[in-house]
């Protein structure tokens, strides 16, 4: 589904189907994800939105007994093809998970890890990039004096911003957020949302959320999924004021969910 021909398309999904064994999780999904915009996926639990998100950085490859069909073009290259280099895709498409998942290492090591596994040896470069990433994730001021203490000592909200910084350090083009505020308090949630609005200047962002107000606040485009199908995809402002499908209207008004 394309709704704006003016925008540059970063990811183009065409007729995607996804199966967990026999269960058909995503049905004939076609959608365009626009460059340097925030696209939100909403819908009730089990509608396939997280599954689609995890297709974008090939995390579903880790789940045994799954199957994907269709084409998923990332800058014109089909990443569902068998010979796609998983590692290089994951460098371009970063991910922030539902629960903060810092490594049991120091704050510094957490951020530097992505660079080290990609073969960066230059210590000064790493130090510089750690600082830059923490600044971009609005965490630098809070942690600059304790970079070499355990990341597990940070609060939940700080841990989630650390995970964002860790993801920024490898300079991805796209960042996936899988319900990033599900385990955070309102103030931390607010900070993450502000951060997302800041980050969209430089990155293409896809966010899955259960919180409709959050989708309304942070996204430019919203996709509503139900039972594995894309029901409606539109500019967020349009969808939240005049939804075209009755199903969307029911969901947005809280009739089911």
């Amino acid at each position: 589904m394309s709704i704006n021909n003016e925008e540059k398309i970063k990811i183009k999904a065409d007729n995607i189907n996804f199966y967990y064994g026999q269960s058909h999780a995503i049905k004939n999904l076609s959608i365009d994800i626009y460059d340097k915009k925030v696209t939100a996926f909403i819908g009730p639990s089990g509608c396939g939105k997280s599954t689609f998100l995890r297709m974008l950085n090939k995390m579903n490859d880790l789940v045994p007994n799954t199957r994907a069909e269709g084409t998923l073009l990332f800058d014109g290259q089909d990443i569902l093809e068998k010979n796609t280099d998983v590692v290089s895709i994951r460098k371009k498409v970063g991910m922030v998970f539902q629960k903060p998942n810092p490594f049991p290492k120091t704050i510094f090591q957490n951020i530097a890890y992505g660079l080290e596994v990609n073969g960066v040896k230059d210590k000064d470069f790493i130090r510089k990039r750690v600082e830059d990433s923490l600044r971009k994730a609005a965490l630098w001021e809070e942690v600059k004096t304790r970079l070499h203490t355990s990341a597990l000592m940070l609060s939940g909200g700080q841990q989630q911003r650390l995970c964002i910084a860790r993801c920024l350090a490898v300079e991805p083009q796209v960042i996936l957020f899988d319900e990033p505020c599900a385990s955070l308090d309102p103030i931390s949630t607010n900070k993450i949302e502000e951060l997302i609005l800041e980050l969209k200047k430089f990155y293409t962002i896809v966010i899955v959320t259960h919180n409709m107000q959050q989708a309304a606040r942070v996204s430019d485009y919203t996709a509503f999924m139900y039972l594995g199908e894309l029901i409606e995809f539109d500019k967020t402002a349009t969808m939240f004021t005049v939804p075209k499908q009755p199903k969307t209207e029911e969901y947005l008004s809280g009739k089911f969910g």
Binding site: N57, Y113, G114, V117, R166
Partner: peptide, 25 residues
């Protein structure tokens, strides 16, 4: 499992994940 996912999502290979994250933990 979540920290293995975190490592893989950063572009680490399975072997790097085991050696640098899983084993030390």
């Amino acid at each position: 499992y979540s920290i293995r996912e975190a490592s893989l999502a950063l572009g680490a290979t399975q072997w790097q994940t085991i050696r640098k994250i899983v084993l030390p933990t």
